[in-house]
């Protein structure tokens, strides 16, 4: 069931100064890494990864524009349209997984971490943010029992540097047979490159401007692949050669632009 249904906001949880999670009842079967097209009636429709995948679903929203600002202001009882779940999910297998999250990327990885811990897979998660006050889902990861490692670009909490820098260090220290990453694309490209050099299978969740979410409009074109149906979760080895990875995206008029 992927057609639009109207849900009501059940509650909003503040994750940090610029990020909230919106919870709503929706009985669709979502798997970790999948996304929905979230319609704010009268304003816009945007792709959002599920940060909670049970019947009380959640999407976690970084306030970056008009649509996300409206989601920030949402209150209990407000109506939203949901299409989906769409896209490929994370494959959660192996004995030991390293999760690497930058910024709001934690939203997509959290359901995967939950499944991994539930399946008894030894899990370490690097959660990175620009500064300590912008870290999200740290308590949630700790309460799941994961080994949580924190990085901040400004060093205001624990490791000083990018999540990818800390991830490379963690990869040296321990033995991991899978890596899952979601966050800024250049950060992920660093992680993918390192993993492929070490021969560790790595999965990456990408973000692009989308319209249809179902593989026909070409808005999220990525080297002949489509982030909405071939992704958003890709195997690193399948995309490392794609020229756009970490460099270009498509704007609303379809022209190529550099990822800021």
């Amino acid at each position: 069931m992927t057609r639009t249904r109207i849900v009501r906001v059940e509650r909003t949880d503040v994750e940090c100064s610029h990020t909230v999670t919106i919870r709503f009842q929706d009985e669709s079967l979502a798997r970790p890494g999948q996304f929905a097209m979230v319609w704010i009636p009268g304003l816009d429709e945007v792709p959002m990864s599920f940060s909670y995948i049970g019947d009380l679903k959640g999407v976690t929203v970084h306030n970056v524009g008009e649509a996300t600002a409206a989601l920030h202001d949402a209150s209990r009882g407000d109506k939203l349209g949901i299409r989906g779940p769409f896209g490929r999910d994370y494959r959660i297998e192996g004995e030991s997984i390293l999760f690497v999250s930058g910024g709001t990327g934690a939203a997509s990885l959290m359901p995967a971490l939950e499944v991994a811990m539930g399946n008894g897979i030894r899990s370490t998660i690097v959660i990175g943010a620009k500064t300590a006050s912008e870290l999200i889902f740290v308590d949630r990861a700790i309460s799941l029992g994961a080994d949580v490692r924190i990085s901040t670009d400004d060093g205001s909490k624990e490791y000083k540097g990018f999540a990818s820098d800390l991830a490379l260090q963690v990869l040296q220290e321990g033995s991991f047979d899978r890596v899952l990453t979601c966050g800024p694309e250049r950060m992920m490209k660093t992680v993918v490159t390192a993993c492929l050099e070490k021969g560790i299978p790595v999965q990456v969740s990408l973000e692009r401007f989308m319209r249809c979410g179902m593989g026909i409009c070409d808005s999220c074109s990525f080297g002949g692949l489509h982030v909405c149906v071939d992704g958003p979760v890709f195997d690193g080895k399948d995309i490392i050669e794609i020229e756009d990875f970490g460099v270009f995206r498509r704007s609303a008029d379809g022209s190529r632009e550099v990822i800021p």
Binding site: T4, M37, E45, R211, C212, C217, G254
Partner: peptide, 21 residues
């Protein structure tokens, strides 16, 4: 602006609006 696509029982309605570079 989105929504530009809606899925129905036996089809899809779109109004993308001739987006092109």
């Amino acid at each position: 602006p989105n929504p530009t696509v809606v899925e129905l029982e036996a089809g899809i309605i779109n109004a993308v609006g001739l987006a092109n570079p």
